[in-house]
Each structure stands twice: as structure tokens, then as C-alpha cells.
């Protein structure tokens, strides 16, 4: 679009007075061409300079790496949280075990049968 505008300017300058027309037109043309080139260079800096292109590639590679690392970290976190969930699920006692623990706890209380006997006046037999 900018190039088109410049061309329009050149056409406008071409419509200038007839005496100075060829020189001015040439100057204007060269200017506009120079402007076009500089603008084109500005517009397409990556393609014009291979060093910057390389840097950008490196940057892209770095960004990609960082992205990958972030993704990996995210995945790792998800995995770790997942594995934590898995572990917690794995470590969580099943209903059977919970009831078994409750049973053991109640059987342990038999050791305090004397106290219970004194308090409640009952005997406990396991």
C-alpha cells in the first residue's frame, strides 16, 4: 500500500510545470525509488539481512525451546500432579482397609479393658 502511495506522489510530481519536469521528475523518481527501497527494506528487514534472519531463527529457536520447556514443565507439573493424584489414590486406603484399621483400633482398646470395666461396669471378651 505504501508503495502505491509513493507511486501516486510520483505521478503528482509528474504533473508539475513543464520546464522543470524532466529533472524534477527524475529526482523525484530517484527519491521515490530510494524511499521505496528504504521502505521496502524497512518493511522486509528479515529477508534483506541474513544476519538478522539468523538471529531471528535463533530467537525463534529459543522461543520454541522456551515454549517447549514451558510445555514440558506444564506437562511435568500435570504429570506430577497426576502422579500425585495417582499416588494419593494408590496410597489411599481402600474401604476394606479402612474398616480393617477400625477393627484393629477397636481390638487395641481391649488392652484398656480394666479402665473400661471400671467406668462402665462391663467385661470385654475378644
Amino acid at each position: 500500500m505504501q508503495v502505491t502511495n509513493n507511486t501516486n506522489l510520483a505521478t503528482k510530481s509528474i504533473v508539475a510545470p513543464s520546464n522543470t519536469l524532466p529533472v524534477q521528475a527524475r529526482e523525484l523518481r530517484t527519491r521515490t525509488l530510494a524511499q521505496e527501497e528504504s521502505q521496502a527494506q524497512k518493511l522486509q528487514p528479515d529477508t534483506s539481512s541474513p544476519q538478522r534472519f539468523d538471529v531471528d531463527q535463533q530467537a525463534i529457536a529459543l522461543i520454541e525451546r522456551e515454549q517447549l520447556q514451558l510445555d514440558n514443565n506444564g506437562n511435568n507439573q500435570q504429570q506430577t500432579t497426576g502422579s500425585n493424584d495417582g499416588n494419593s489414590r494408590y496410597d489411599a486406603p481402600s474401604n476394606q482397609n479402612q474398616s480393617a484399621v477400625a477393627a484393629y483400633q477397636s481390638v487395641d482398646s481391649i488392652a484398656q479393658r480394666d479402665n473400661i470395666q471400671q467406668v462402665f461396669g462391663v467385661d470385654l471378651f475378644a
Binding site: 480393617a100 481391649i110 461396669g121 475378644a126
Partner: peptide, 19 residues
């Protein structure tokens, strides 16, 4: 209890025979 344990609470009677 599910693990095969049990508990009987009694009041009175012969402790020796009950045991």
C-alpha cells in the same frame, strides 16, 4: 469385624468361664 475379629461385651457372670 471384617478381618475376623470380634468383641463380646457382657455384664456379670463368671469371668473365668466366659473367657
Amino acid at each position: 469385624f471384617p478381618n475376623g475379629a470380634g468383641l463380646c461385651t457382657t455384664r456379670g457372670g463368671s469371668s473365668f468361664l466366659i473367657s
